[in-house]
Design a protein around this nucleic acid. Sequence first.
DNA 1: CTGAAAGCGCTTACAG
DNA 2: CTGAAAGCGCTTACAG
Lengths: 316, 316
Amino acid sequence: MARIAGVSKSTVSLVLRHSEKVSKNTKEKVLSAIKQTGYVYNREAAAMRSKSSDLVAIVINDLTHPFFAKLAVSIEAHIRKLGFMTTLVSTNENALIQTQVVAKLQEYRVKAFVICPTVNTQASWLNQLRTPSTQVITVIRQVNNCDVSCVLPNNELGTFQATKALIARGHKHIAFIGGDATVSDYQQRLNGFNSAINTQSDLHSWVFNSVASRYGGRMAMSECLAQVPQVESIVCFNDMVAYGSVEHLLEQGLKPGENIGVIGFDDLDESKNMGVPLSTVQINTDEIAKTVCNIIQGITCEGLHQIPVALIERDS
Amino acid sequence: MARIAGVSKSTVSLVLRHSEKVSKNTKEKVLSAIKQTGYVYNREAAAMRSKSSDLVAIVINDLTHPFFAKLAVSIEAHIRKLGFMTTLVSTNENALIQTQVVAKLQEYRVKAFVICPTVNTQASWLNQLRTPSTQVITVIRQVNNCDVSCVLPNNELGTFQATKALIARGHKHIAFIGGDATVSDYQQRLNGFNSAINTQSDLHSWVFNSVASRYGGRMAMSECLAQVPQVESIVCFNDMVAYGSVEHLLEQGLKPGENIGVIGFDDLDESKNMGVPLSTVQINTDEIAKTVCNIIQGITCEGLHQIPVALIERDS
DNA sequence: CTGAAAGCGCTTACAG
DNA sequence: CTGAAAGCGCTTACAG
């Protein structure tokens, strides 16, 4: 390479790294030589020598779930815009796979891990993952007793506002539908729901768990209707659950927003396009991604960051 | 590292690479030394020296679409089982991003690119990506005049069988609903549909395009019903489109499978759990992933591989 | 502004 | 079975 351009390796290196200490003439010589040969830069060698890395690993519990896919793609795009390289990995909600994959990733000297942890992720594991040269940032799900950074939406406020909106409609019999009680976001959303219920003494509430999917929502709604026929409205763990609930309601001849109030959580793209557009609590994945980027760049401090949510009232 | 164990670097290297030419004694010494220090293997250095790589890049057009997410996760899991490292990247259906991301990935010396190409991907670009040390395998979407390997489902046979099943129900007015005409899988699925329609002379058919999403399906179905009130059944470009179509039908008081036949394509997990379980053409993503793995390992030859599909008749 | 030398952490022949 | 030496493709001081 250097031989072809008729300069030294050092000079080629300087050109590649956009140094300003190189004359235009040699710069052009090198650049044209690069074009001629099909030279590709070897980033491994560069990283090894300079002991630095521009690789950010995004480790996601379940890429198959629409919300996490949306989040992953958003984080990926924002980090790439910073000039870093990203690598996305899906752990399929399996802590063992998560451990294995992250161990392998470490061998590639990653600059930062952005992790949406699987259920049963150990705080100690996350803590030791963090080193002077590797940042660790968890997203959406919080792991207890763990001092790595975490970026998540304001879950409690979201369901609090959603429930209050339902109460404002005059509803007194309200259920919390769907979701898996073992994850932190479930607990936070349920807390927000209960706080709102506790603001008045004449309210009645129920909780029906399920897997956090469309099918789960369908099942939980069915159970709710069977056990609590007087229910007036529901707050769903997330939009997927809400979609399933709405499907079941429609099948029973009940119209969301008329016969029964429904509010979701996430605001997936689909929500606004439904037959009855879904009211929901919007999570701004771009804001989450930006905060993650700011932490990586050192613009924002490490620690816990709650991203504001917005109640979007539509027809349901 | 070598100093701590009291052996040479070469020996440590041999232990790390599971050579059998090392005595048990020294092996244990090295292994325990590794445990003591928090040593992590530097794969970059290894790859550089041996000029090899175990990194497989999976480049997906749209991780936000449930089918592609499922496919990506499946390919990822199978390749990982082979002992290779994977890196997943989403190109958001943007050929420019695809070019940029792949160029960056090349700097990491990837062993193979598994690509589901964006619309407008150039054959020449794919061809030059392929080198003696880098395999290129496209999946699902075929790029014309391109001699890289391609693994895809038997689209034509799928819609052919689906349409034949509808004809067997006695239907004579059948529409093909949804999908974007610029991608190869659309053309293949439409061909299969038309072939089936052409097996009899008393059949009437229509085609309504849309984006390949739930919302697109809703729109296309609405247009179809307005223009062709006599339609008896529909073949959908994929399951997402079918979901949207079913939603619209239900809103119009029409029951899938009773008033109008509906068959999808993909067999996403959700299909079997719908109010009216969806008939569909099943794509076996694990089989696609396995074929990709076999090509990477040299067990299967390069070239075009069509994976069998299966018509799953349910209630719609 | 440019070049020669050293070294990042490994692996690979080659001796012993 | 183990060690000493060379080299992968870069970057980083340091001379000139």
